[in-house]
Structures are given as structure tokens and as C-alpha cells.
Design a protein around this nucleic acid. Structure first.
Lengths: 182, 182
DNA sequence: ATTATCATGTAAATGGTTACATGATTGG
DNA sequence: CCAATCATGTAACCATTTACATGATAAT
């Protein structure tokens, strides 16, 4: 019995269910779509594609262009069924966040108030930049009309804007307090 | 030369800079404060405390109660300096999110629309619950007046409320579309 | 008595990234 | 010609969790 499929397996299976893709394509597509809540690296993609093929959930086709190697994968009927089954199962793991900035903010009264403000400013900027980067992909994602992909992208944009606004407000409060004190 | 300190080292150092704590205390405190953006397990805490002690950034004291073992750690002056230095350094790693729900939402048009709605409902509930759980800790966190700890807690609450509201809106849109179609 | 909690610790497993190797093609 | 990009792949590494071992004390 092969190892049970992980969420990563389904992430990759889902990609090749959208349209035929090579490992390289999957990485590029993932980086501009799911990266902000589900990062994937080559070290996961290529071995996973092989496993999915063994399980006959995807099929592969050689599609070399000249001497440049290229293997394109697509989901099989069984693969689509497995994907559908996964979508009907209850979600197991909660959202996990790891944020160095929040960790520093948490301890920031142990340091210089100037550093704290610098930190908040950097946090605001990071979230603004993240929102902007996601926004760049929006026209492309929207070109096919409404979809789950667009929905999730819009969530990402709204999410980072929310964070930027929230820390922006904290920064203003912090600066005002500093002005009164200084 | 010892390995450079990781963010995890600073997380633990920061805890024992707040007040003397045992490894067990650190775990409990972390679980009700930083857990929502920086999870820590015993497998990290105990070895890290030893490393920090070797570097003389924390000191330990035996504080057994009866036959029950207990080692309490606190930050040394050098430890506090190291913490301050860390807080003045630029942040390296970006916020990382891993969310199985979003991954499923992303692919949810491959499945049954009913499953999609169930998924959205579960997502809303999870975020509501997360906000409520964090809210439970608020009175305790607020009892010492405003602080970075309270600030970060409030961010967590606001963040999960934002997510709950956002997906709640998506769910309504989804349900309306379903009613028109059916 | 028994269960929950306090308390420390580690080995093994898991999950994921990084860095590298290899080589073709395209665009400047 | 050189850099960027396309393309595949893996070994080593890193971070983190899980599961377990051990044993005391407090609460029911």
C-alpha cells in the first residue's frame, strides 16, 4: 500500500487538473497563485509527480521541444475523482502562520522605541508590497471570468491590505505617543 | 564558534526576559500568546534553553517543589542586550502562511458546489472560533495595561475576524448564485 | 485509586528548502 | 558570446512535530 496522499499531492494534482503542465510549469504557476498560502518547491514537485503517476492519478507525455527535455502531466479520470473526494473531506489542519515581524513586535518594548517604529513601518511596507504583487497577477487571473482562483487571489490582496492598514494605525498611535513624550 | 541564534532562540530568550520561566512555563505561555503566528514545541524549547545558557544569555536556577523537578530560567544582562540588538536588526523572512482551507477553496470548482459551501462554512467557523479563543485571553493580557503583547493579541483577533467576515461574504454570494441556478 | 497536571527530556519521523548538477534554447 | 530562461532532478540540510519515556503532585 502506497503512502496516503498529502495535501501537497492534491495541490499538484489540482494544478495538472486545470491544464496539462510540466514540473517547471507547476512551480511557475504555483509561485504566482498559491505561493501566498501554500509554497511548493521543486524538491516536492518532481518526486510527487512520479508518485501520482504510479498511482495512475496523472499521466505523462513526452513533449520535448528540440533537444530540450519536457514532460507534461495531466490528471486522469481517477485523478479527478480523487481530487473531488479530497474536496468533500473535512479539513484537518488549521491555518498556520509564521511571522518574524509579529514575533519582534511582540517583544518590541524590550528595545528602542525608534526600532519599534522602524519595524512597524517595515511591516506596513511589506504588506503593501505583497498586496501590490498579488494585484499584478489580477488582470491575468480575471481574464477568464470569475473563478476560485480569482476569489483566492482577491482574498490575498484584501488580507495584505488589512494587515497594512492595521499596522499603519498602530504606527500612527505609536508616533503620537512618542511626540507627546518627546 | 556556536551556531548563530535563530528567531526561535530569540522567541525563547524574549519569554524569559519577561519573567523567570521554566521550559514548561514557556510552552504554556507561548501557546496562549504567540501560538497564532509562532508555534513552539518542547523539542525546540529544552535544547534551546541549554544553548542559551551556554552562551550565557540566560541563567538557570533549580526551583524544585517537593520532589517535583523544576528549572527556572531568566535572561541575563547579556541576554537582554542580545534581544535589543535583534530588535534593531532588519527582518529577514517574510510572513509565511500555510492554509489547507485556502488550498481547497482554490481548487473547489473541481468538486461539488455543496462541498464548496460546506468548506466555506467551515472556514468561517474556524476563524470565528480562533478569534473567540484569542478573545478569551484578552482580559488577562489587558490586565497589565497596554503592551506589545496586547497589541499583537488584538491583531490576531482582528485578523481572524477579518477572515471570518471575508469568507462569510463569499459564502453568501455562493448561496445566492446557487439559488438562482437551482 | 485514578485522572489531570506539572515537569523535563529526546529519538525518530516529517515536511520542506537550498544548493547543486546538468544541459538545451532564446534573446540581446 | 553571454545571460536569462527553460527544464529535470536529487542529496543534504534544516526546522519542526510527534511520540514516547519518566516521574512527581494535586484534585476528585
Amino acid at each position: 500500500m502506497a503512502a496516503a496522499l498529502s495535501n501537497n499531492s492534491y495541490a499538484i494534482l489540482g494544478m495538472v487538473a486545470l491544464r496539462p503542465m510540466s514540473g517547471y510549469d507547476i512551480k511557475a504557476f504555483a509561485d504566482e497563485t498559491v505561493r501566498h498560502f501554500w509554497a511548493i518547491s521543486y524538491g516536492q514537485i518532481y518526486p510527487e509527480l512520479k508518485q501520482l503517476e504510479e498511482l495512475e492519478l496523472v499521466s505523462s507525455e513526452e513533449a520535448a521541444v528540440g533537444g530540450r527535455q519536457r514532460t507534461v502531466y495531466q490528471a486522469t479520470t481517477r485523478g479527478r475523482e480523487a481530487l473531488e473526494a479530497w474536496l468533500s473531506e473535512p479539513v484537518e489542519s488549521p491555518m498556520e502562520v509564521r511571522d518574524e515581524m509579529l514575533l519582534r513586535v511582540f517583544f518590541s518594548d524590550h528595545g528602542d522605541p525608534k526600532d519599534r517604529e522602524r519595524l512597524l513601518r517595515a511591516t506596513v511596507k511589506r504588506h503593501q508590497d505583497a498586496a501590490a504583487r498579488l494585484g499584478d497577477h489580477r488582470p491575468k487571473a480575471a481574464s477568464h471570468g470569475p473563478s476560485c482562483r480569482l476569489e483566492v487571489l482577491d482574498f490575498g490582496i484584501a488580507f495584505h491590505r488589512f494587515c497594512a492598514d492595521w499596522f499603519s494605525k498602530q504606527l500612527r498611535t505609536s508616533e503620537e505617543a512618542g511626540n507627546h513624550a518627546g
